[in-house]
Simulated scan of single mutants.
Amino acid sequence: MDRDLGAARELAVGLAVRAGRLQIDRRDTLRVGAPKAHANDVVSDVDIDSEQLIVDAIRAAWPDDAVQAEEGHGRDGASGWKWVIDPLDGTRNYISRTGPWSVCIALYQGDEARMAVVHEPVAGETFSAVDGGGALLNGEVISASGGGSLAEALIGVSFQPNPRTKDRAGRLIREVLPLAGDIRRLPAALNLVYLACGRLDGGVALDTKLWDIAAGALIAREAGVVLGGRDADFSTELTIGAGPALWAELSEKVRKAA
């Protein structure tokens, strides 16, 4: 079944902006629920309501599409298309007011990402891409960093804060930080879209979920970022990204450390 990906992007951008506005408006009155998988895996009523807003509109527009969403509003579909949604990537930052977060929406056809949106509410920045159509930031074309020296590179690091992954991240940082210009810890989606617009030279994400990286990965790829993991394909277990000039050096170091 064909799909108008431009119309899908237009809908996703509008929904991401609406969800981001809800998140800003309700930040002073949010309620934090019980942790999910571990003590640092927190969720708020704003996460849940943001997801409901997005999913309800997608169901109204394309009722036969599948939905995979972080906070449980998923469903099977019959169209061959699937929406992958993280309504608030970076909940800990959002709750604690210590850093950025984003709204992430991706559309898959089978196993292939075809459209993606990542919206950062506070900055008012909306990153988007359509498969084969390049990557945009607020409607303007973006591209990956051309930097090729790891010693001068700014590297984004993302990881789930469970004990096992923190141990992996600690080993990675011990190996890579002395060789790099500097690192920044970021939610996975923003790590990838900051790679896409050249703010970061490289990035690594450990033990994510598909909804954390689905949208950002397509945007990064469309901006010219090279993506991989333990081998040629990136995965939720390990995602490495860099501009073409830095890719070989960074991926070699990360694979050894991670």
Results as ranks from 00 to 15, higher is better:
residue 215 A to L: 11
residue 181 G to S: 09
residue 195 L to M: 15
residue 233 D to V: 12
residue 182 D to A: 15
residue 161 P to N: 12
residue 223 A to G: 02
residue 216 G to M: 06
residue 241 G to Q: 07
residue 198 G to L: 10
residue 244 P to C: 06
residue 166 K to Q: 15
residue 241 G to P: 01
residue 196 A to D: 12
residue 168 R to T: 04
residue 237 E to L: 07
residue 214 A to P: 02
residue 166 K to H: 00
residue 194 Y to F: 14
residue 198 G to I: 08
residue 156 G to Y: 06
residue 165 T to D: 14
residue 246 L to N: 06
residue 214 A to Q: 08
residue 159 F to M: 11
residue 225 V to H: 14
residue 235 S to P: 01
residue 178 P to F: 03
residue 237 E to M: 03
residue 190 L to F: 09
residue 179 L to S: 08
residue 194 Y to Q: 15
residue 164 R to D: 14
residue 242 A to C: 04
residue 203 G to P: 02
residue 195 L to K: 13
residue 177 L to Q: 11
residue 168 R to D: 08
residue 216 G to A: 03
residue 219 I to F: 01
residue 150 L to Q: 04
residue 181 G to K: 06
residue 186 L to S: 04
residue 221 R to Q: 15
residue 202 G to Q: 10
residue 207 D to L: 04
residue 167 D to F: 12
residue 155 I to R: 12
residue 173 I to W: 01
residue 150 L to H: 02
residue 200 L to H: 06
residue 193 V to P: 05
residue 160 Q to K: 15
residue 211 W to Y: 12
residue 240 I to M: 06
residue 187 P to K: 07
residue 242 A to P: 00
residue 195 L to F: 10
residue 209 K to V: 05
residue 160 Q to V: 08
residue 182 D to Q: 10
residue 151 A to N: 04
residue 227 L to A: 09
residue 217 A to R: 14
residue 191 N to S: 14
residue 240 I to H: 03
residue 183 I to N: 00
residue 199 R to A: 12
residue 201 D to T: 07
residue 235 S to A: 13
residue 193 V to H: 13
residue 194 Y to H: 14
residue 219 I to E: 09
residue 197 C to G: 06
residue 233 D to W: 02
residue 172 L to F: 07
residue 178 P to A: 05
residue 210 L to N: 04
residue 204 V to S: 08
